[in-house]
């Protein structure tokens, strides 16, 4: 509780900077309007005007908040939660691709890590490709994935999930390889004195030792998945999903819509990371790894 004041202070500072930036960036349009109308406006009048433009360069925080409420809570209250104008609808489209991609990426990442840790050949042959895969900008790759999959008749959810998986498998591979290798030489020697098999070493030592590493990389992975799903919605000129909202927003100069979609994405990401954090706490506690 004693952290509430400092935390609120930081939020207040950020919102303050945002408002100041909105005044500064939207001022030109306000002055231009006044000039066209042939009137002089004071600074106060200008500032008030920058808070309520229809197409601001930078929307003010309350405008974004209003738009968010209008497209989520208000639509739920009027019983149109899954209408095409609702961010809940678009959010769900993106979220479903995110979750599917995250599941594929995590399973693939864990499987690759197990292979890499147990096979020198895989370590030398797969790891460099995994690293190389992440050096290609996803914006360049996403359209190709969509086009290629479309040409074999795969559309909709799966192509986006593939892009999500492409981004999320990497942190999982790296984290799991580190985690599976985290037992020290003494731990490995101890198992050797029991003549333990590789499989026993994996299930009894390596896997449980890797759990804290796994959860850290899953948190990075799920955030990357969401980015992947949004990026996957851009090149098709998609009409559904948070990415599509950002895209149409930019076509029609609807900056308020772009910002509210951005915030919706950020909120979804925060919730997903928090959910994994919760699973992490429960799991590690049950394992006795957290006190």
């Amino acid at each position: 509780m004693r952290y509430i004041l400092p935390v609120l202070t930081v939020i207040a500072v950020i919102v303050g900077i945002w408002y100041a930036a909105a005044v500064w960036m939207n001022a030109q349009w306000a002055y231009d309007q006044a000039e066209r109308a042939g009137v002089e406006i004071t600074f106060t009048e200008m500032a008030a005007q920058t808070m309520q433009q229809d197409k601001p360069v930078l929307p003010a925080p309350h405008q974004v908040a209003q738009e968010l409420w209008k497209t989520t809570g208000a639509m739920v209250l009027s019983g149109r939660a899954f209408s095409k104008r609702s961010l809940i609808f678009h959010g769900w489209i993106t979220l479903s691709a995110t979750l599917l991609g995250f599941a594929i990426g995590s399973v693939a990442g864990i499987a690759l890590a197990v292979g890499i840790v147990h096979s020198r050949v895989m370590d030398m042959s797969v790891m460099p490709w995994a690293i190389a895969s992440q050096t290609i900008p996803i914006l360049a790759l996403a359209p190709m994935i969509i086009v290629v999959l479309n040409s074999v008749g795969v559309q909709g959810l799966l192509p986006k999930a593939v892009i999500s998986a492409y981004l999320s498998f990497f942190p999982v591979v790296v984290g799991m390889v580190t985690g599976l290798r985290s037992p020290d030489a003494m731990q490995m020697d101890l198992l050797k004195t029991y003549s333990a098999s590789n499989a026993q070493g994996f299930w009894k030592l390596r896997l449980p030792a890797s759990m804290p590493f796994l959860f850290t990389s899953l948190k990075i992975g799920i955030a990357a998945s969401l980015v992947g799903a949004i990026v996957g919605e851009l090149p098709t000129g998609a009409i559904r999903g948070l990415g599509a909202r950002m895209l149409t927003g930019s076509y029609y100069g609807q900056n308020i819509q772009i910002w509210s979609a951005l915030f919706a994405a950020a909120i979804v990401a925060a919730l997903l990371v928090a959910l994994i954090g919760l699973i992490e706490r429960v799991t590690l506690k049950r394992m006795g790894l957290a006190r």
Binding site: D189, L190, P208, G288
Partner: peptide, 28 residues
């Protein structure tokens, strides 16, 4: 033929004391 005790106890933090002692027994 032998049991080995290392410089550090090296108990698995995710196992109870009983669970740690059971480790070689499970493996064997």
């Amino acid at each position: 033929a032998y049991g080995y005790v290392f410089q550090a106890a090296g108990l698995y933090p995710w196992r109870t004391i009983g669970g740690n002692i059971r480790l070689p027994l499970e493996i064997m």
